[in-house]
Amino acid sequence: MVYFILICVLVCIIGSIRAISKTKAKMMQSGNEMINEFINKNNISMTKAINIPGYNGSGKFIIDDVNKFVHYFVYTKGNSNLFHKQFSYKDILKCELIKDGRIALVKDVFSIIDMANKKEYIKKFGIRITFNDLDFPYLDVYFIKSSVGVTLTGLGDKVSLTNEWLSSMNIIIDRGKAMA
């Protein structure tokens, strides 16, 4: 009898997990479809697309190197709404590293990989991109946002993703300066 109850509970838990994952997959697919439809309608050349953490694939940062624009997309499931913001390369002012609420210019940080080898505890780790737009002055992208401190050791994927974002944004900032 006890085994029967445990099996029923286990089946219910597995069913719940499957339902949640199907819901997330549908949301991600809907968001990607809306973003792709917008890209096709507006003739955006997608040179590089980077998923924004925390949006389950429904937030994207798209670099259009042909037209020299960066596009920011976020799909919200509740009202099936797509938020889009477009920035010219020259409107991207700087990219900064966020570490526990403190912001430092990337030039001042010698190497994220060296930081990863340290055993210090970090609660918030990400980047801030500053734009020349009063309505949308900056975008914070967190790769780690925890209530307890974690070390970057063993989080190679987060460190490499941060490096990818930083190198992409620094290239765009340099190209934007050349345009001005």
Rank of each mutant, 00 (worst) to 15 (best):
K85D: 00
F83E: 12
I52Y: 01
I63D: 06
Y55H: 04
F87A: 04
E37F: 02
A25W: 09
M46I: 14
I17Q: 05
E33V: 11
F38N: 04
N51P: 15
I98C: 03
I98T: 06
G54N: 09
K60S: 05
M46S: 14
Q29A: 14
S16N: 07
N36M: 06
F69K: 07
M28V: 12
P53R: 05
N36I: 08
V11F: 07
A49C: 14
T76C: 11
N56P: 06
K99V: 15
N81R: 10
Q29L: 06
K41C: 09
I39T: 11
F38K: 01
V66Y: 13
L97F: 09
M28N: 10
R18L: 13
A25I: 09
I20Q: 08
I44A: 09
L82A: 03
D91I: 02
M27C: 15
Q86V: 11
D64S: 12
L93A: 07
A19I: 10
N32W: 03
V70T: 12
N51F: 12
K22C: 10
E96I: 01
A25D: 14
I44K: 10
K41Q: 15
K26M: 03
Y55M: 08
T76D: 08
V11W: 04
K77V: 02
N79V: 08
K60D: 06
N81G: 01
I62Y: 02
I20D: 04
Y55Q: 00
F69N: 05
K94C: 13
Q29E: 14
K48H: 09
N36E: 07
N40D: 05
H84A: 10
N79M: 02
E33K: 13
K90V: 02
K41M: 09
K68Y: 08
G15S: 08
V66H: 11
I98N: 00
A19Q: 11
P53N: 12
V74Q: 12
K77Q: 08
K94W: 11
K77S: 06
G59W: 00
S80Y: 05
E96K: 14
G57Q: 01
N79K: 11
S80M: 09
F73M: 00
A19R: 07
